[in-house]
Amino acid sequence: MSAIQASVPATPVARRGRLTFLGGRVLEYLAVLIVALTLNFLLPRALPGGPLKLFGSPEALARLTAEERAQIATEYGFGDPIHLQFLDYLHSVVTLDLGTSLSDGRDVTAAIGDALPWTLLLVGTSIVATTLIGITLGVIGGIRRREGKGAFTLTGAIVVDSIPQFWLAMLLIVWFGVKWQIAPTFGATGPDGTTVAGLAQHLVLPVATLTITGIGYIFMYTRSSMLSVLTSEPVQHAHARGIPRGRLVRRHVLRPALLPVHTLIMLDIGFLAAGAIVVETVFAYPGLGRLTFGAIAARDYPLMQGTFLVLTLMVVLMNLLADLTYPLLDPRARTGGDR
């Protein structure tokens, strides 16, 4: 026991209200957001190469004079000194006017607005599937491990977790799309427009890829969390007090064991909501991931900044949400440990 912990209970402590707690958290996350925005602005500019290099064919670019280059740069705003560009960027973030794409001239906000629903559909479906399957298997795996079984499931999970997404995606395309031709492999809608059946069919393979590659992670996390709770003192003591097994698992193990998994999943949602880059690209799914991929390939600064902004916002938002919902699950976090 450290001196700090030891000293705490003896002296009266200041109590903080719930609102102050909430307010404090939100402020903290605002600070994180500002740092992340700065990085979002700086990182694309740190990439080798620039938008000019990809503006036209190498021959055409070589023929441009210095003035012509400067003119193009000024037109798109990246001729200004970097701090002015940054102020412009912050302004555009606040007003949600993210500029025009350098590669196809589209409005960035509109491009993101078009892609976002597709990503949410794809990622939402796979997260629900991954979570349900992963947690169920993890809980069973944890209980079985306690009985000395379950080594096979663990090996399986490690193998599944190690499968690269693009490889699995290609296998699925080869088998289900080409060989057996039972699922579409391309895009989000069929030729007959947006129908529920068409949407569902086009979701099958990308969702399967995301789910299969995502399960291992959640499974292992849940399993190890289950194991540590199963061997924890409160559970051992509950067992000693004569609480039967089924009830023990349901009431005394599940909730504490799923606490860290809850945080993990929230963070996962944040990352995935910004687009599943590999899967969307392989299946040509019109979501944020593919948009991001295209933007990076074209050094399309405004579009990159836009999609990164979505990523940042999602991650920070889900973090905040995880922080705020955690006390609902764990009474100890409700008052920050004070009485």
């Binding site: 003192e233 409160p234 003591h237 000693a240 007090r241 005394h252 504490p256 009474p331 100890r332």
Partner: peptide
């Protein structure tokens, strides 16, 4: 256990259900 023999396990201070 619990009905004919009551058990106060070792380290009961940290053995109550925290939630």
């Amino acid at each position: 256990r619990g009905r004919r023999i009551g058990i106060v396990p070792q380290g009961a201070m940290s053995g109550l259900s925290p939630i």
